[in-house]
């Protein structure tokens, strides 16, 4: 009997809910034998446009609904545990990384409908007004994933951004892009509306400057940037006063969500 012949996967970018080749037609081979799309500046622009279009819809979902969708992503990821372990190189560390990614999705899924209660306030102003402050999503967030852990680092970036109602354009680990593109398949089957989360692979130096300078991106999670990259991102971010966050060392924290949110304060007069 002839040996089984694999049906191999063509790795593609994830933009606007679709798996697409890079418009540039280019690829690179960070893993032997696998062609990974090398996204261009135009792919980035398409992703930002898709994200912006999706923003009102996702931000307008109820907090409970966003939590359910994020939890479903955790379910989908957990169901593909073995595939991710294999893509991450196998062994116990890979298993721990997948578990950490699942945990991040579950944890942030649970924050969606608690944030306003923890991070919001009712403000006792000295006058006849009912005044309160609530967190709202900032808009389009660029997530720069860590090189390693390639999967858990990406999930710890996108999960809090999405939990807060933002939409995401993520740059995957350049050296280990495969788990990110497979994660896109998880996201694609988790009921995120098209464009809410977009995943690009390619060379950091080709994409990062344009992401940092894009006038329709509101914030950047620069967790995966080197010190030099971070400085350049912060400088370019000034063009439209982007919020740049770059800390956390992988710990889960509600600050990861609120750092990508705006506090809105509303004054209502009290009267008859």
């Amino acid at each position: 009997m002839a040996p089984r012949l694999d049906v191999r996967k063509t790795y593609k970018l994830f933009v606007n809910g679709e798996f697409v080749r890079s418009e540039s037609g280019r690829a690179y081979r960070p893993v032997a034998g696998v062609n990974v799309p090398r996204a261009s500046r135009k792919d980035l622009r398409d992703a930002v446009r898709a994200a912006r279009t999706a923003f009102d819809g996702w931000a307008g979902r109820t907090a409970m609904n966003r939590g359910q969708v994020l939890y479903r992503a955790a379910e989908m990821l957990d169901g593909r545990r073995q595939q991710f372990i294999q893509e991450l190189g196998g062994g116990k560390p890979a298993g721990r990384e997948v578990d950490a990614a699942v945990e991040a999705l579950v944890w942030y899924a649970g924050w969606t409908d608690k944030l306003a209660q923890v991070a919001g306030t009712v403000n006792p102003v000295a006058g006849p007004y009912f005044n309160f402050t609530i967190p709202e999503p900032t808009g389009v967030v660029g997530v720069v994933a860590t090189e390693t852990p390639a999967l858990a680092g990406l999930v710890r970036g996108i999960a809090p951004a999405l939990a807060g109602g933002n939409v995401v354009v993520a740059l995957a680990s350049e050296s280990k892009p495969l788990p990110a593109l497979t994660l896109a398949e998880v996201l694609a089957t988790s009921d995120f509306p098209p464009g809410v989360v977009n995943v690009l692979t390619g060379q950091r130096k080709e994409l990062l400057p344009w992401l940092a300078a894009h006038m329709d991106v509101n914030a950047i999670d620069a967790a995966g940037c080197t010190a030099e990259e971070l400085a350049a991102v912060q400088e370019a971010a000034a063009g439209n006063v982007k919020r740049v966050v770059a800390h956390r060392n992988g710990e889960l924290s509600p600050s990861a969500v609120t750092d990508l949110m705006e506090m809105k304060t509303v004054w209502h007069p009290i009267g008859t």
Binding site: T121, N123, P124, V125, A126, G127, Y129, N131, T133, M263, T265, W267
Partner: peptide, 9 residues
């Protein structure tokens, strides 16, 4: 309207 207890920004 402004108040010290009310966040502004």
């Amino acid at each position: 309207r402004f108040d010290p207890t009310s966040p502004f920004g």
